[in-house]
């Protein structure tokens, strides 16, 4: 999916020739110390940032150079480390907006004057998505009135609603209580079961161990190690990067 990606900020190489692949239905954990370049990588895939070198592919289509909304319509969905929700819209409206906007065909002229009502099929899909993240009870509350944990779930639901090809989740569990984190793990697994690839950036290693098929460790912009969680964590280089010494 990602080939030889490099990004430089000023003199700092945030990403230095990173190769990474997420196959459909696979959950890949992306871990590494702060400043390793994890969010930078996600921003390059999502289109929020342009890489200096390297390519980004999705199902054989080149994504790099495309605007973020184009990538979203091709099937890239993401959440943000600092949440980016729309406070005045309700949870249901979030999902509705995402569902409509993500259609590859784009906006129809009639949607300038329609009543913004979901069709029966769309309404079913919205309801199903609300149920998956457990937000039915809060579906009609403006998101600005919800606590942080619920906002994270709204972001995930918003990312999922159009059945994306790949989900990029940037520290989705930060700010979640244990029960919400449990919902998150279930949701992430259910996403993968529907053939969507997941790239999960996480500091919560227990969650990574629980849900990820494969783990990639990033440090100072380079892939340090990758493989099964236990193997990777046993790698002395990874322990040095994380703990400063070998355990």
């Amino acid at each position: 999916m990602v080939e030889g990606l490099s990004v430089t900020f000023g003199g700092v190489r945030a990403l230095d020739g990173v190769d990474l692949e997420v196959t459909p239905g696979e959950i890949v954990g992306l871990v590494g110390p702060n400043g390793a370049g994890k969010s930078t990588l996600v921003n390059c895939v999502g289109g929020q940032l342009d890489a200096d070198a390297g390519r980004v592919w999705l199902d054989g289509i080149r994504l790099d150079g495309l605007a973020p909304h184009r990538r979203a319509r091709l099937g890239v969905a993401r959440t943000f480390q600092r949440i980016a929700v729309f406070p005045e819209l309700t949870v249901r409206e979030h999902l509705f907006v995402a569902l409509r906007a993500r259609r590859p065909a784009g906006t129809r002229w009639s949607e300038l004057v329609d009543r913004a009502q979901p069709t029966a099929a769309e309404a079913d899909l919205l309801e199903a998505t609300l149920e998956r993240v457990g937000l039915q009870a809060r579906a009609d509350a403006p998101v600005g009135t919800l606590p942080l944990g619920a906002c994270r779930l709204v972001e995930i639901a918003r990312a999922l609603v159009g059945a994306p090809r790949v989900l990029l989740a940037d520290e989705p569990s930060s700010g979640l209580d244990p029960r919400e984190a449990g919902t998150l793990a279930t949701v992430v697994r259910s996403v993968a079961e529907r053939d969507t690839g997941v790239l999960l950036i996480e500091h919560d290693l227990a969650l990574v161990a629980e849900v990820c098929d494969r783990v990639v460790v990033l440090d100072v912009g380079q892939v340090l190690a990758q493989g099964a969680f236990a193997d990777v964590m046993a790698d002395p280089r990874v322990q040095r990067a994380y703990l400063g010494h070998v355990a």
């Binding site: 929020q48 909304h69 819209l89 906007a101 993500r102 972001e155």
Partner: peptide, 12 residues
């Protein structure tokens, strides 16, 4: 509300 979030769901 959030240009970043809006773009990420496909709004142009």
């Amino acid at each position: 509300a959030s240009p970043l979030g809006a773009e990420s769901v496909g709004i142009n």
